[in-house]
Nucleic acid binder design. Structure first.
Lengths: 142, 142
DNA sequence: CTCCGTGCAAAGGCTTTGCACACTC
DNA sequence: GAGTGTGCAAAGCCTTTGCACGGAG
């Protein structure tokens, strides 16, 4: 396989940390890039397999693990039994999830800034408020 | 087994909703009552089994499910693969969990009130901010 | 008698791990 | 050749479900 030229910051980061940007990883990243929302490992798997059927889920998990470790990907738990992933570089937002109807909408991140500041001030704790999931009842179900 | 007198609000609530306060449930509630922190189903299971070895995990889950439905118990995900439970009547608080060292401390609930209000105002969404888990880096690990 | 609750066993669903081979540096 | 990555299979872990029996109302 021809050498992978690091054309993007993610490839760069991988290489500078001793990891490789393999075709499989490219496909995974590509899919995450295109996805509007957070997707599960299984979602990614299915999409990759459409083009490359031999792709195995375990590689997805392993790649996701690596990307997480490098801070390139964030993990969100929407409480439906599977974790969702999202490219950090695509920016971050938050979710309001209705416990009754299951619908979720995005939350303006600026609402969280005061909280983050308050936590830092009072507890010296650097809250990672990317992709927070807040549960409750939406307007219709309340 | 003699009839269970509903001596407490929880028994009352169960009965008024057509559920029974069985010895098993009493043990589960007793353990949750004593526990300072949030405990997992498996934790409860082990403690119950110390006194009553035939107790099976499935009953714990089923009881917890019932209590959750009645709003008597809250569920928290500390991202370590298992869910934690806590008696609603014991009051609620929040967690700051360090992603590096794993330690967690409690967070003053009053810090969240403004957020809750802002979300309701802007999105008409009733956020359930009981037992929120906030991840990040503690003072030592930052 | 009907519904609820239990223990038990088995299954389920998502995620992780061991292994051998392939590729990169 | 040392380290990294992959497909494959199998295991792991927490949680849920089916079933039959027992007990409460």
């Amino acid at each position: 396989m021809a050498a992978m030229e690091p054309r993007n910051p993610i490839g760069e980061k991988l290489r500078s940390n001793g990891y490789h940007l393999t075709p499989q990883r490219l496909m995974i990243l590509d899919i995450m890039e295109r996805s509007d929302d957070h997707i599960s490992a299984e979602d990614i798997h299915q999409q990759v397999r459409a083009r490359y059927p031999r792709q195995h889920v375990s590689s997805i998990y392993r790649t996701l693990e690596t990307l997480k470790k490098l801070g390139l990907v964030t993990e969100t738990d929407l409480r439906d039994g599977k974790l969702r992933y999202h490219l950090q570089e695509k920016g971050h937002h938050h979710h309001l999830i209705c416990e009754k109807c299951g619908q979720f909408q995005q939350l303006d991140g600026s609402l969280l800034s005061p909280l983050k500041a308050a936590i830092l001030r009072k507890y010296r704790f650097r809250a990672d408020l990317r992709h927070l999931a807040i549960f409750g009842r939406c307007g219709k179900c309340a």
